[in-house]
């Protein structure tokens, strides 16, 4: 077994090197950035809702915290920091795409598929071992990078555990592994259909962007909706995940009237000395409430999201197996 896995890695050594580099470089970079933030030593008494308030706003930040807040935000706003913090939006996909496009499409494209499939007992077994090798490579390196991104998230909000906050939660932690494996299986299926590596990568990239953009709204509207509780306007808990709007509320009661009419009815007008009137809107009107999931529900949310993604990944893998057994090897 080990030989077969090793052979697959050797056969795709560029892609193997890429996955290793993505995992390790991201992990090291994220840990360095976390260390830089932690070394500011922002006083915990200065935190506002677990976050570092913007140093410059005296209304938010206690005066004694200004200098530390400025140092913290100077690091946080640097470009290299943004690049590392947002790595989870792209790199797991690249790792999955690079491996997935070569597994089947690379063989068909290079003309080695007829030979490889003839030598193997069955095409299914052949693909299974290739997928096992790819997953064995992807999972540890994506997990290392994802956990380092969790450490970085913990440093960004020093008073909030990364596992009790939904900030950026689908771009760190276990989601690195889930995205990588989903991209791998999807690209294998797509590569089996297209049969050419480079177009497979580009089409898969477009699909991955769609999937990345729509996953969170889709999860919020379906599997996560039952976990959400109504939060009245101006009430928020640190680290929460807002899943949908709860409609307009006024003085703690649902507001169903016409917003414009309400504002017109509640204007206060005063006569001006020189004639005419001056009208002022009320300072507070009907406001939007929200359905939100508090941060302490992090693991149930992650479990549901992971289950949905794994189900999708299994469907894509099954499609890959079905197609590889049916298609012509050229």
């Amino acid at each position: 077994m080990f030989e077969r896995v090793w052979l697959t890695w050797k056969q795709h050594r560029f892609e193997t090197g890429l996955v290793v580099a993505i995992g390790l470089i991201t992990a090291v970079a994220a840990l360095i950035e976390a260390w830089r933030l932690n070394s500011v030593g922002f006083p915990s008494s200065c935190l506002s809702d677990g976050r570092v308030p913007y140093w410059y706003d005296p209304a938010q930040a206690v005066t004694a915290c200004q200098a530390a807040g400025q140092r913290f935000h100077d690091i946080h706003n640097e470009f290299d920091f943004g690049l590392v913090a947002e790595a989870g939006q792209l790199l797991p996909f690249l790792a999955g795409l690079a491996l997935g496009a070569q597994l089947v499409a690379g063989e068909i494209d290079g003309g080695t598929a007829p030979f490889a499939w003839t030598l193997a007992d069955s095409r299914w077994k052949w693909l299974l071992w290739k997928l096992v090798a790819a997953v064995l490579l992807l999972v540890p390196f994506m997990l290392i990078a994802g956990m380092a991104e969790d450490v970085l998230q913990g440093a960004v909000n020093p008073g909030l555990s990364a596992y009790a906050s939904f900030e950026n939660y689908t771009a760190r932690g276990i989601f690195w592994v889930l995205w990588g494996v989903a991209a791998l299986c999807g690209t294998v299926a797509l590569g089996t259909i297209i049969g050419r590596a480079s177009p497979t990568v580009l089409v898969a990239l477009v699909i991955c962007i769609f999937a990345r953009g729509t996953l969170e709204p889709a999860l919020n509207a379906t599997v996560l909706r039952p976990l959400a509780v109504l939060e009245l306007p101006r009430i928020h808990t640190p680290g929460e995940l807002v899943v949908s709007s709860g409609g307009l509320y006024l003085d703690g009661q649902p507001f169903s009237g016409d917003l414009q009419t309400w504002y017109q009815d509640n204007e206060t007008c005063t006569a001006l000395a020189g004639g005419g009137t001056e009208c002022h809107s009320p300072e507070q009107g009907p406001e939007d409430s929200s359905y939100a999931i508090p941060g302490n529900q992090y693991w149930p949310v992650v479990a549901r999201g992971a289950a949905a993604m794994l189900a999708g990944t299994a469907v894509l893998a099954a499609l890959g197996f079905f197609l590889v057994g049916r298609r012509r090897p050229y």
Partner: peptide, 20 residues
């Protein structure tokens, strides 16, 4: 002289260049 490494390296370079 190989398509896939060119695609992958180009993608990473493009992300960096666009971001920077």
């Amino acid at each position: 002289g190989r398509t896939m490494p060119a695609v992958m390296v180009a993608l990473i370079v493009c992300v960096f260049v666009r971001g920077l």
